[in-house]
Design a protein around this nucleic acid. Structure first.
Lengths: 168, 168
DNA sequence: TTTTTTGCAAATCGTTTGCACGCTG
DNA sequence: CAGCGTGCAAACGATTTGCAAAAAA
């Protein structure tokens, strides 16, 4: 159990938050859960379950895929992690570093993910709902395009193909 | 092969379009493909592969799931059918009845799907891409809310749960 | 000690694919 | 008759689940 307990060093804000959440549900604060939380928050934003699982293994730990999935669920429920799809057929996650809700701009050339938040877009969606008599609860917007670097060197038919495969 | 050939009665616009598409790719116009196309265009807009497959069986035909999936692919490539997810984990399709691109407003209470098109929204996305130096290629927006009928009678926690399960 | 968690492997779900046979052009 | 298309069943990839052993409260 070496490396797992090592992760339990400082006491990050998210760790405290997770503990509170678990307590409130009478769930337990395990080494695995802490290791997963730590891995997520020290890694860059967007990742998938498989990558996270592999990363944990590399860190010396050895946490089963099942536990990774179960913990991700918990973290999403705790509001510490957000789940997106970003057009792929498998789930994509991101640490909710206290930052606001945002939408994603995804490059079809290099898969870079750019987060953006636009009050005018939020307002417009609110207006659309009002217009139809709906109460807005949630939304998901993904814009697919080509970043400055890929804009020129991307081949038309490759991109067309990529778009056709998108799981949106 | 009875009911399949029956579907080949009039000659709808979409049938002609599909034939042209198939010809151009040196593919064949089979009874199964025509039956699937007909079923899609006489049914209401949004459906999934399983429902379509079941519907075809009920119509007397007996087309395999594999053929249904293969034909849907073809129809999407021909531009006669659009593929969406609408927040569920399995694909959702709709006949592209010559109508323009549009986005979806989905009721979390009764699952009703409302299509809408907003030039101002399209323009805003274009502006967002410009702002980041991206070239816009495609987008996917789903707004989840409560329709007028479900607005009041929906229970908070049920909705919250539904949102958490969304595959967006 | 009681209850929750874990790992494992098997199960699931939607979708895809290899293959031998059947139909279209 | 030369290719495509079809059905079947097995294969797939991501995710979930049942169960007995292990760890937290």
């Amino acid at each position: 159990m070496g490396p797992i307990s090592e992760a339990r060093k400082a006491r990050s804000a998210e760790e405290a938050c997770f503990e509170t959440f678990l307590r409130s549900k009478k769930l337990k604060l395990t080494g695995e859960r802490l290791a997963i939380l730590a891995a997520i928050f020290q890694r860059e934003s967007h990742f998938d379950a498989e990558t996270l699982h592999a990363g944990l293994r590399k860190d010396g730990g050895d946490i089963s895929r099942a536990t990774v999935y179960r913990s991700l669920d918990l973290l999403v429920k705790a509001g510490l992690v957000r789940k997106n799809s970003l057009g792929s057929s498998h789930a994509n996650y991101e640490a909710a570093r206290g930052n606001e809700h945002h939408d994603h701009l995804i490059c079809l050339g290099c898969n870079a993910v750019l987060e953006f938040f636009r009050p005018d877009l939020e307002a417009l969606q609110e207006r659309i709902c009002d217009h139809h008599g709906y109460k807005l609860v949630h939304h998901s917007l993904q814009i697919f395009g080509l970043c400055p670097a890929c804009k020129d060197k991307a081949d038309e038919s490759t991109i067309r193909n990529r778009v056709a495969q998108l799981h949106t």
